[in-house]
Design a protein around this nucleic acid. Structure first.
Lengths: 344, 344
DNA sequence: ATTGAATGCTTAAACCTTTAACCTGTTTTT
DNA sequence: AAAAACAGGTTAAAGGTTTAAGCATTCAAT
């Protein structure tokens, strides 16, 4: 069923059908209704490919993800979809599957430039209106995507000045630390991600600032720098707890849920109770923490919003509208559950 | 950069450029090389929209998912991507976001027919070569997708006879039960999903068969039918454990990891040790089980393979090749970890 | 020397929509 | 009554690519 077919049935020209269907141009009520009826009863679906060819717009957003299996990725995509759906866009997805290839979660995605370029090539060939990159790795992303189309980096950071970026704020690390201090803790262990990781670095800063403002001296033996793995959380906590009872942390802030759970496991092994003897805060608000026992106090990221805003930027850019902020950094929130004892 | 531009630079007609780039038709080596060089140095990207319009093929697979945030979904998409990538396809994604709307996880997706139809309409408009439906809900899917394009249902079951289906086999329930019996258990509690759920039903059958073959009488008080939630696993186990020590199950097979964890929590509350006093097996191999303590013995589904095979079917169908099986049911595997004690 | 085939290229139509420009009556304005 | 405006259409071109058909030219075979 094409426009031509409708035209023939309605006894008008193809142009008139197009005008009627798009509610543009001048078509009499009578003829318009006839055309609409015919289209509906033959369930005509417009050929967007032809439309796109003509309009040089596809109403399609290319989404390039480092790994679809990471939950945060899905949540961001969910946000993109929400916007896309209500604004007539369709999502083109390409999954780089990085996680299964680089064992080292904080490795550089630069290695995958070929793969990225080929995915990008497809997006360009399919005339995507813009590209959203969902970057889960730690380093700043820069010089990865070579394209003339508008690009929005999400989750990760970029240094490129002509691209857009929407991510979460690590300032929450400040609030978490404050929260622990207010709960009466003075010795707060920090289980960090790798040192060369941008978010780790920013969170460390928040931790330091909060301590300083609270008049607590920064003590390097309370900072454990590692990877993002469960096992590291476990061993880091073991090390903390090997200190004398006087010295050892009464609270631990882990930079992700996995390490937080690892830490709690270690404490359990040593007979140290959480939260009675040791408070623990995680980061990411993953399912693991929600169903763990005790339920993990953690930080939730505004992932869905990140996705929606990224999609909105592409939309505005494609419509030639001005976009307010090149960078948007959304606040996180602390989810108080069962692993922090708020003693006074 | 269009074919016409290359043609002008190379001093030939557009047709010749097309022939050269696609390595079809008759073009002299010399001219072909010249064209290829020009295309490369100006990094020409073919306009797939125009190509699609002409060819009436887009090399695009429409993927319609019930909820992208469910981990199983991501894994299947990962499988689709794997195939797509190596065969020149691109993924069009549409997320129905059902999970956040129907609280009841086993509700019928029929309610969302409008949303499904509109997503489908977009796929049709964009001339997707075929459609893969990733269905996470329990009921058989039927009559949901009205389209002329080839449809492959994954994960879920369908009754429609002219569509394709690729999913996992629930026969593993038989093996799990056998495994528990072989480990010395005679009283095996079953924590099931809802009664009207297709997979629940099939797994129950496997459980029954295994018991029968082992000469163990089926006892209804060892079967708890509920929803898929953590809380139900908890209360179901509580009920099992309220029986006398003589009567109560020495092993529990939960139909998902979440309920399995709930059951272990309940046992812990009662001072019953897992696996020493009680063995537990889950289903799904989710992250939660992997990092839980003790590490959960569970069933892994061939999700990535499901995705790849589904994509392959679309590919073959689009190429006019015959597809061997209308239905493909792939085997699951038992992941033995720490929650089953293999006593003799 | 004439035919036949092979080579290397060009022309033009087709895929389906949109849209500027044009045409023909009818109504309004001066 | 003539000119202008308008309503309700139509025609044709354009968007980038593919591909059947056609046209010379060369070369081998009769």
């Amino acid at each position: 069923m094409k426009i031509k077919d409708i035209a023939k049935l309605a006894g008008v020209s193809a142009a008139t059908v197009s005008y009627a269907l798009n509610d543009t141009g001048r078509v009499s009520q009578e003829v318009k209704q006839r055309i609409l009826d015919i289209a509906a009863s033959n369930n005509y679906t417009p050929n967007l490919i032809a439309k796109s060819l003509r309009a040089n717009r596809t109403f399609t957003i290319g989404v390039l993800v480092e790994d679809i299996k990471v939950l945060a990725t899905s949540r961001i995509i969910n946000g993109i979809q929400k916007y896309a759906e209500s604004h007539g866009y369709q999502i083109l997805l390409s999954d780089l599957g990085l996680w299964e290839k680089i064992d080292c979660r904080y490795d550089e995605a630069v290695l995958y430039k070929d793969k990225i370029q080929s995915a990008l090539g497809l997006f360009e060939s399919l005339q995507a209106d813009g590209i959203i990159y969902i970057g889960m790795h730690d380093r700043n992303v820069t010089g990865l995507l070579e394209t003339d189309k508008p690009v929005v980096y999400t989750y990760c950071y970029t240094e490129k000045k002509n691209d857009f970026m929407v991510t979460y704020s690590n300032d929450i690390a400040y609030d978490v630390t404050k929260y622990l201090v207010d709960a009466g803790h003075k010795k707060i262990g920090l289980i960090s991600g790798p040192i060369n990781s941008t978010p780790s670095h920013k969170r460390l800063l928040g931790y330091q600032t909060a301590l300083m403002e609270s008049g607590i001296e920064l003590n390097l033996k309370y900072i454990s720098v590692g990877n993002w793995e469960y096992e590291f959380g476990y061993s880091a906590c073991m090390e903390f707890m090997s200190m004398s009872v006087k010295e050892r942390p009464t609270a631990i802030f882990a930079m992700n849920d996995l390490m937080a759970i690892g830490a709690i496991e270690a404490a359990g092994k040593l007979g140290i109770r959480v939260p009675e003897d040791l408070s623990v805060v995680g980061f990411d608000d993953t399912e693991i923490g929600r169903y763990y026992h005790p339920k993990l106090t953690t930080v939730a990221l505004p992932l869905q919003e990140i996705g929606s805003i990224a999609a909105k930027i592409i939309d505005e850019l494609s419509n030639g509208e001005p976009v307010q902020d090149q960078e948007q950094i959304l606040p996180c929130s602390l989810i108080k559950r069962e692993t922090v004892k708020e003693r006074k």
